[in-house]
Protein backbone atom coordinates (compact mmCIF):
# COMPACT_ATOMS: atom_id res chain seq x y z
CA UNK A 1 0.00 0.00 0.00
CA UNK A 2 2.32 2.74 -1.09
CA UNK A 3 1.31 5.78 -2.95
CA UNK A 4 3.53 6.90 -5.77
CA UNK A 5 3.83 10.27 -7.32
CA UNK A 6 6.52 10.24 -9.89
CA UNK A 7 5.26 13.50 -11.31
CA UNK A 8 7.14 14.23 -14.46
CA UNK A 9 5.75 17.54 -15.41
CA UNK A 10 6.30 20.22 -17.96
CA UNK A 11 3.99 23.09 -17.45
CA UNK A 12 3.98 25.42 -20.33
CA UNK A 13 1.10 27.81 -20.09
CA UNK A 14 1.82 31.10 -21.87
CA UNK A 15 5.38 29.88 -22.25
CA UNK A 16 6.01 30.44 -18.59
CA UNK A 17 7.97 27.41 -17.62
CA UNK A 18 6.62 27.39 -14.10
CA UNK A 19 7.48 23.83 -13.27
CA UNK A 20 9.80 21.55 -15.19
CA UNK A 21 10.58 17.92 -14.58
CA UNK A 22 9.38 17.82 -11.03
CA UNK A 23 9.32 14.27 -9.74
CA UNK A 24 8.75 13.09 -6.25
CA UNK A 25 7.11 10.33 -4.29
CA UNK A 26 4.85 10.68 -1.30
CA UNK A 27 4.65 7.56 0.82
CA UNK A 28 1.61 6.86 2.90
CA UNK A 29 1.73 8.66 6.19
CA UNK A 30 4.59 10.86 5.12
CA UNK A 31 5.01 14.61 4.97
CA UNK A 32 6.89 15.88 1.96
CA UNK A 33 7.85 19.52 2.31
CA UNK A 34 8.32 21.59 -0.83
CA UNK A 35 10.59 24.52 -0.08
CA UNK A 36 11.41 27.44 -2.31
CA UNK A 37 11.11 31.17 -2.86
CA UNK A 38 7.96 32.73 -4.20
CA UNK A 39 7.69 31.99 -7.87
CA UNK A 40 9.65 28.77 -7.66
CA UNK A 41 6.67 26.67 -8.70
CA UNK A 42 5.62 25.14 -5.40
CA UNK A 43 1.98 26.13 -5.60
CA UNK A 44 1.78 25.26 -9.29
CA UNK A 45 3.02 21.79 -8.43
CA UNK A 46 0.34 21.07 -5.88
CA UNK A 47 -2.37 22.65 -7.98
CA UNK A 48 -1.45 20.19 -10.69
CA UNK A 49 -1.63 17.34 -8.21
CA UNK A 50 -5.03 18.60 -7.09
CA UNK A 51 -5.98 18.83 -10.78
CA UNK A 52 -7.02 22.43 -10.48
CA UNK A 53 -4.87 23.24 -13.49
CA UNK A 54 -3.96 21.01 -16.39
CA UNK A 55 -0.59 19.36 -16.60
CA UNK A 56 1.41 20.16 -19.72
CA UNK A 57 3.41 16.98 -19.67
CA UNK A 58 4.04 14.23 -17.20
CA UNK A 59 2.29 11.70 -15.11
CA UNK A 60 0.72 11.51 -11.69
CA UNK A 61 0.40 8.10 -10.10
CA UNK A 62 -2.01 7.87 -7.24
CA UNK A 63 -2.29 4.56 -5.42
CA UNK A 64 -0.63 2.93 -8.37
CA UNK A 65 -2.97 4.30 -11.02
CA UNK A 66 -1.86 6.81 -13.60
CA UNK A 67 -4.70 9.18 -12.94
CA UNK A 68 -4.03 11.50 -15.85
CA UNK A 69 -4.72 8.46 -18.07
CA UNK A 70 -7.61 6.97 -16.19
CA UNK A 71 -9.47 10.22 -15.67
CA UNK A 72 -8.03 12.48 -18.32
CA UNK A 73 -10.48 15.35 -18.44
CA UNK A 74 -11.76 15.81 -15.00
CA UNK A 75 -10.77 14.25 -11.74
CA UNK A 76 -13.24 11.70 -10.43
CA UNK A 77 -15.23 12.26 -7.26
CA UNK A 78 -13.15 9.57 -5.68
CA UNK A 79 -9.88 11.33 -6.46
CA UNK A 80 -11.23 14.63 -5.29
CA UNK A 81 -12.29 13.01 -2.05
CA UNK A 82 -8.92 11.45 -1.46
CA UNK A 83 -6.88 14.52 -2.29
CA UNK A 84 -7.73 17.65 -0.34
CA UNK A 85 -6.26 21.14 -0.28
CA UNK A 86 -5.64 23.59 2.52
CA UNK A 87 -4.97 27.11 1.34
CA UNK A 88 -2.65 29.73 2.66
CA UNK A 89 -5.15 32.38 3.60
CA UNK A 90 -7.83 31.24 6.04
CA UNK A 91 -9.51 34.63 5.67
CA UNK A 92 -10.14 34.02 1.99
CA UNK A 93 -10.83 30.30 1.95
CA UNK A 94 -13.99 30.45 4.05
CA UNK A 95 -17.18 32.09 2.84
CA UNK A 96 -18.10 34.88 5.19
CA UNK A 97 -21.87 34.56 4.75
CA UNK A 98 -22.03 30.93 5.85
CA UNK A 99 -21.65 29.37 9.27
CA UNK A 100 -18.85 26.99 10.11
CA UNK A 101 -21.40 24.16 10.17
CA UNK A 102 -22.36 24.95 6.59
CA UNK A 103 -18.73 24.80 5.50
CA UNK A 104 -18.21 21.42 7.09
CA UNK A 105 -21.59 19.98 6.07
CA UNK A 106 -21.04 20.66 2.36
CA UNK A 107 -18.30 18.09 1.78
CA UNK A 108 -20.17 15.57 3.96
CA UNK A 109 -23.28 15.90 1.80
CA UNK A 110 -21.52 16.09 -1.55
CA UNK A 111 -19.41 13.04 -0.84
CA UNK A 112 -22.32 11.26 0.87
CA UNK A 113 -20.45 10.86 4.12
CA UNK A 114 -23.50 11.62 6.21
CA UNK A 115 -27.17 12.26 5.74
CA UNK A 116 -29.92 13.62 7.87
CA UNK A 117 -29.67 16.74 9.94
CA UNK A 118 -28.80 14.96 13.15
CA UNK A 119 -26.07 12.81 11.71
CA UNK A 120 -24.50 15.71 9.86
CA UNK A 121 -24.50 17.83 12.97
CA UNK A 122 -22.83 15.08 14.94
CA UNK A 123 -20.16 14.60 12.29
CA UNK A 124 -19.51 18.35 12.18
CA UNK A 125 -19.04 18.43 15.95
CA UNK A 126 -16.72 15.41 15.77
CA UNK A 127 -14.65 17.15 13.15
CA UNK A 128 -14.37 20.33 15.16
CA UNK A 129 -13.28 18.36 18.17
CA UNK A 130 -10.69 16.53 16.10
CA UNK A 131 -9.11 19.87 15.22
CA UNK A 132 -9.34 20.93 18.86
CA UNK A 133 -12.02 23.57 18.44
CA UNK A 134 -14.17 23.48 21.54
CA UNK A 135 -17.00 23.83 22.45
CA UNK A 136 -17.77 22.30 19.09
CA UNK A 137 -21.52 22.91 19.04
CA UNK A 138 -20.99 26.59 19.69
CA UNK A 139 -18.21 27.02 17.13
CA UNK A 140 -20.35 25.30 14.51
CA UNK A 141 -22.89 28.10 14.71
CA UNK A 142 -20.39 30.88 14.32
CA UNK A 143 -19.44 32.75 11.19
CA UNK A 144 -15.85 32.94 9.96
CA UNK A 145 -15.38 36.54 11.10
CA UNK A 146 -16.09 35.48 14.67
CA UNK A 147 -13.05 33.22 14.68
CA UNK A 148 -9.36 34.05 14.89
CA UNK A 149 -6.97 33.20 12.09
CA UNK A 150 -5.72 30.08 13.81
CA UNK A 151 -9.26 28.89 14.47
CA UNK A 152 -10.19 29.46 10.84
CA UNK A 153 -7.22 27.51 9.63
CA UNK A 154 -8.34 24.69 11.92
CA UNK A 155 -11.78 24.87 10.30
CA UNK A 156 -10.07 24.61 6.90
CA UNK A 157 -8.25 21.51 8.14
CA UNK A 158 -11.52 20.07 9.48
CA UNK A 159 -13.13 20.66 6.09
CA UNK A 160 -10.35 18.73 4.40
CA UNK A 161 -10.72 15.94 6.97
CA UNK A 162 -14.49 15.70 6.49
CA UNK A 163 -14.11 13.38 3.54
CA UNK A 164 -11.42 11.11 5.02
CA UNK A 165 -8.68 12.11 2.58
CA UNK A 166 -5.58 10.09 1.88
CA UNK A 167 -3.47 13.06 0.89
CA UNK A 168 -3.67 16.66 2.03
CA UNK A 169 -1.97 19.35 0.02
CA UNK A 170 -1.17 22.21 2.38
CA UNK A 171 -0.15 25.47 0.75
CA UNK A 172 1.75 27.53 3.34
CA UNK A 173 -0.90 26.79 5.97
CA UNK A 174 0.79 28.74 8.75
CA UNK A 175 2.38 31.69 7.02
CA UNK A 176 -0.61 33.98 7.57
CA UNK A 177 -1.07 33.05 11.21
CA UNK A 178 0.17 34.73 14.35
CA UNK A 179 3.51 33.33 15.38
CA UNK A 180 2.35 32.01 18.73
CA UNK A 181 -0.34 29.81 17.22
CA UNK A 182 1.64 28.47 14.26
CA UNK A 183 3.14 25.59 16.16
CA UNK A 184 -0.31 24.53 17.35
CA UNK A 185 -1.49 24.14 13.75
CA UNK A 186 1.69 22.33 12.70
CA UNK A 187 1.39 19.97 15.64
CA UNK A 188 -2.21 19.26 14.66
CA UNK A 189 -1.09 18.36 11.14
CA UNK A 190 1.53 16.07 12.63
CA UNK A 191 -0.97 14.46 14.99
CA UNK A 192 -3.37 13.69 12.15
CA UNK A 193 -0.53 12.13 10.21
CA UNK A 194 0.31 9.87 13.14
CA UNK A 195 -3.26 8.96 14.04
CA UNK A 196 -4.84 8.60 10.62
CA UNK A 197 -1.91 7.88 8.36
CA UNK A 198 -2.69 10.87 6.19
CA UNK A 199 0.04 11.94 3.78
CA UNK A 200 0.86 15.56 3.15
CA UNK A 201 2.56 17.74 0.65
CA UNK A 202 3.49 20.76 2.73
CA UNK A 203 4.52 23.93 0.96
CA UNK A 204 6.60 26.52 2.69
CA UNK A 205 9.34 29.04 2.12
CA UNK A 206 10.56 28.49 5.65
CA UNK A 207 13.21 25.80 5.90
CA UNK A 208 12.90 25.61 9.66
CA UNK A 209 9.25 24.63 9.60
CA UNK A 210 9.96 22.23 6.72
CA UNK A 211 12.53 20.56 8.92
CA UNK A 212 10.11 20.52 11.82
CA UNK A 213 7.30 18.74 10.05
CA UNK A 214 8.77 17.24 6.88
CA UNK A 215 9.89 13.65 6.64
CA UNK A 216 11.30 14.49 3.27
CA UNK A 217 12.25 17.89 1.92
CA UNK A 218 12.35 18.94 -1.72
CA UNK A 219 13.98 22.22 -2.62
CA UNK A 220 12.61 24.03 -5.67
CA UNK A 221 14.27 26.78 -7.61
CA UNK A 222 12.84 28.46 -10.69
CA UNK A 223 10.55 25.56 -11.44
CA UNK A 224 13.15 22.85 -10.95
CA UNK A 225 13.59 20.51 -8.07
CA UNK A 226 17.25 20.95 -7.28
CA UNK A 227 17.69 18.82 -4.20
CA UNK A 228 15.65 16.38 -2.20
CA UNK A 229 15.93 13.84 0.50
CA UNK A 230 15.28 12.90 4.08
CA UNK A 231 14.78 16.01 6.17
CA UNK A 232 17.75 15.66 8.48
CA UNK A 233 20.19 14.51 5.80
CA UNK A 234 19.28 17.43 3.62
CA UNK A 235 19.55 19.96 6.42
CA UNK A 236 22.83 18.70 7.80
CA UNK A 237 24.53 17.99 4.52
CA UNK A 238 22.96 20.35 2.06
CA UNK A 239 24.68 19.69 -1.23
CA UNK A 240 23.21 22.15 -3.71
CA UNK A 241 24.64 25.68 -3.56
CA UNK A 242 21.10 27.05 -3.61
CA UNK A 243 20.07 24.99 -0.58
CA UNK A 244 23.19 26.20 1.17
CA UNK A 245 22.28 29.77 0.30
CA UNK A 246 18.77 29.28 1.67
CA UNK A 247 20.12 27.76 4.86
CA UNK A 248 22.57 30.59 5.37
CA UNK A 249 19.75 33.11 4.97
CA UNK A 250 17.57 31.71 7.71
CA UNK A 251 17.83 33.96 10.76
CA UNK A 252 19.98 32.18 13.24
CA UNK A 253 20.01 33.52 16.78
CA UNK A 254 23.09 31.49 17.55
CA UNK A 255 25.21 33.63 15.31
CA UNK A 256 25.06 37.37 15.09
CA UNK A 257 24.66 39.05 11.74
CA UNK A 258 27.93 39.52 10.01
CA UNK A 259 28.37 42.53 7.82
CA UNK A 260 30.53 40.67 5.35
CA UNK A 261 28.79 39.02 2.49
CA UNK A 262 29.28 35.44 3.63
CA UNK A 263 27.84 32.98 1.18
CA UNK A 264 25.58 35.62 -0.33
CA UNK A 265 24.95 34.96 -3.96
CA UNK A 266 23.75 38.02 -5.80
CA UNK A 267 21.54 38.40 -8.78
CA UNK A 268 18.01 37.54 -9.65
CA UNK A 269 15.98 34.48 -10.46
CA UNK A 270 16.09 33.99 -14.23
CA UNK A 271 13.03 34.77 -16.28
CA UNK A 272 10.83 31.74 -16.62
CA UNK A 273 9.44 32.92 -19.93
CA UNK A 274 12.48 31.98 -21.94
CA UNK A 275 14.65 30.16 -19.46
CA UNK A 276 18.33 29.97 -20.36
CA UNK A 277 19.69 26.49 -21.00
CA UNK A 278 21.53 24.74 -18.23
CA UNK A 279 21.07 25.04 -14.53
CA UNK A 280 18.65 27.82 -13.54
CA UNK A 281 20.85 28.75 -10.60
CA UNK A 282 23.95 29.22 -12.74
CA UNK A 283 23.45 33.00 -12.92
CA UNK A 284 23.74 33.35 -9.15
CA UNK A 285 25.88 30.41 -8.19
CA UNK A 286 29.29 31.12 -6.70
CA UNK A 287 30.61 27.73 -7.79
CA UNK A 288 29.43 28.00 -11.36
CA UNK A 289 31.37 25.99 -13.95
CA UNK A 290 31.21 25.82 -17.71
CA UNK A 291 28.74 22.95 -18.10
CA UNK A 292 26.31 24.72 -15.76
CA UNK A 293 25.43 27.23 -18.43
CA UNK A 294 24.80 24.59 -21.05
CA UNK A 295 23.20 21.49 -19.61
CA UNK A 296 20.75 20.97 -16.80
CA UNK A 297 22.47 18.48 -14.51
CA UNK A 298 20.80 15.16 -13.86
CA UNK A 299 20.00 13.64 -10.52
CA UNK A 300 22.95 12.40 -8.52
CA UNK A 301 22.49 10.42 -5.34
CA UNK A 302 24.86 11.83 -2.72
CA UNK A 303 23.87 9.36 -0.06
CA UNK A 304 20.98 6.90 0.25
CA UNK A 305 17.77 8.90 0.29
CA UNK A 306 19.38 12.19 -0.68
CA UNK A 307 19.84 13.40 -4.24
CA UNK A 308 20.89 16.62 -5.87
CA UNK A 309 20.84 18.11 -9.36
CA UNK A 310 24.13 19.91 -9.58
CA UNK A 311 27.18 19.49 -11.82
CA UNK A 312 29.43 19.61 -8.77
CA UNK A 313 28.14 16.18 -7.92
CA UNK A 314 27.77 14.74 -11.41
CA UNK A 315 29.53 11.41 -11.87
CA UNK A 316 32.09 12.95 -14.22
CA UNK A 317 32.74 15.75 -11.76
CA UNK A 318 33.90 15.54 -8.17
CA UNK A 319 31.69 12.85 -6.79
Amino acid sequence: MTKHFPVGVFFNKKQVHAVEDASFIVQRGQVVALVGESGSGKTTTIRMIARLIPVTRGEIFFEGANILRTEPHRASMDYRRKVQLIFQDPFASLNSVHTIEHHLARPLIIHKKASGRQEIHERVCDLLETVELKPAAEIANRYPHQLSGGQRQRVAIARALAVDPELILADEPISMLDVSIRMGVLNLIDKLKEERGISYVYITHDLASARYIGDKIMVMYAGHMVEGGDGEALMNEAAHPYTQLLLSAVPNPHASLRTDKGIGARGEVPSLIDPPPGCPFATRCLKVMNPCRQVMPGQTVVQPGHWVRCHLFSPDGNS
Binding site: S180, M183, N187, A208
Partner: peptide, 13 residues
Protein backbone atom coordinates in the same frame (compact mmCIF):
# COMPACT_ATOMS: atom_id res chain seq x y z
CA UNK B 1 11.56 25.74 14.84
CA UNK B 2 15.29 25.82 14.30
CA UNK B 3 17.38 24.67 11.36
CA UNK B 4 20.05 23.14 13.52
CA UNK B 5 20.38 21.25 16.75
CA UNK B 6 18.11 18.60 18.14
CA UNK B 7 14.63 18.34 16.75
CA UNK B 8 12.19 18.56 19.60
CA UNK B 9 8.52 19.14 19.97
CA UNK B 10 7.61 22.81 20.06
CA UNK B 11 4.46 23.83 21.78
CA UNK B 12 3.81 27.39 20.68
CA UNK B 13 1.28 29.13 22.89
Amino acid sequence: PSISGLKHKLTGI
